[in-house]
């Protein structure tokens, strides 16, 4: 089972009515691999993450996680649509951080980080708090653990959101444009935390980003999406240094011009 990739999109399609957002996507992500997804808006890149987090249903294909199908399950040797119970078992391996943070406003930073470990994993409160304290320390927010989200800056909220996701001990972390809603001077502190996680945790990471510099420096592989398909993918040096595809070149030029 360990020779299976951590994530596999197998002929996955997503449509909204007549609009095809993702067209027959095939994508493998290896264990511990860090993959950045770039592309113009409307290219389907965020949908990739949302399907993997089961926030969007897929229309065709199969999604595999850690060697098992997630959107389907085996029954008498055949793949049938998964039950919610099956989905939750597999989904437990995935964590996600959102562009708009989505912290729970009625809970403190600490409360946000212990909620799911207690209610979902059934952890003891003391144990959950201990673990959450470690994570808040890791993201540099020990001093803010009793603050409510409305009392924190955007960068601080996003760091709490990262700690909250890690508290569930996922194997895969998804980052959906996590710095896009931040003031420019707060982007650095969040990227710093993501770098640290990449170094210290053995996580598979998949991120949609507009931070080309960060994608280049951080990822093992970069996928360029265009109109619902992977247009080009490869090592960052390759994609950014010597793009083969005309679309990729145009996109990177436009992004670089914008500064």
């Amino acid at each position: 089972m360990n020779d299976m990739p951590m994530v596999r999109f197998e002929n996955v399609s997503k449509r909204y009515g007549p609009l095809t957002v993702l067209d027959n996507l095939n994508l493998d992500i290896g264990r511990g691999e860090k993959v950045s997804i770039i592309g113009p808006s409307g290219s389907g890149k965020t949908t990739v993450l949302r399907m993997l987090m089961t926030l969007e249903a897929i229309n065709d294909g199969v999604l595999w996680v850690d060697g098992e199908p997630m959107t389907h399950m085996m029954q008498n040797g055949k793949l049938v649509p998964a039950t919610i119970k099956h989905i939750r078992r597999i989904r437990a391996k995935i964590g996600m951080v959102f562009q708009s943070f989505n912290l729970f406003p009625h809970m403190t930073a600490m409360g946000n980080c212990i909620e799911a470990p207690i209610t979902v994993l059934g952890m003891k409160r003391s144990e959950a708090e201990e673990r959450a304290a470690e994570l808040l320390d890791m993201v540099g927010l020990s001093a803010k653990k009793d603050h409510y989200p409305s009392q924190l800056s955007g960068g601080q909220q996003q760091r709490v959101a990262i700690a909250r996701a890690l508290a569930m001990r996922p194997k895969i972390m998804l980052f959906d444009e996590v710095t896009s809603a931040l003031d420019p001077e707060l982007v650095g502190e969040v990227l710093q935390v993501i770098r640290k996680i990449g170094r210290e945790h053995d996580l598979t990471m998949l991120m949609v980003t507009h931070q080309m510099g960060f994608a280049k420096e951080f990822s093992d592989r970069v996928c360029f999406f265009y109109q619902g398909k992977i247009c080009e993918q490869g090592a960052p040096a390759e994609i950014f240094g010597n793009p083969k595809n005309e679309r990729t070149r145009q996109f990177l030029n436009a992004v670089l011009e914008a500064g």
Partner: peptide, 15 residues
């Protein structure tokens, strides 16, 4: 986003 964050934390609908 509150629903989505709850799904990402693998909560059940009731939770």
């Amino acid at each position: 986003g509150q629903w989505e964050a709850s799904i990402a934390l693998n909560m059940s609908k009731a939770q």
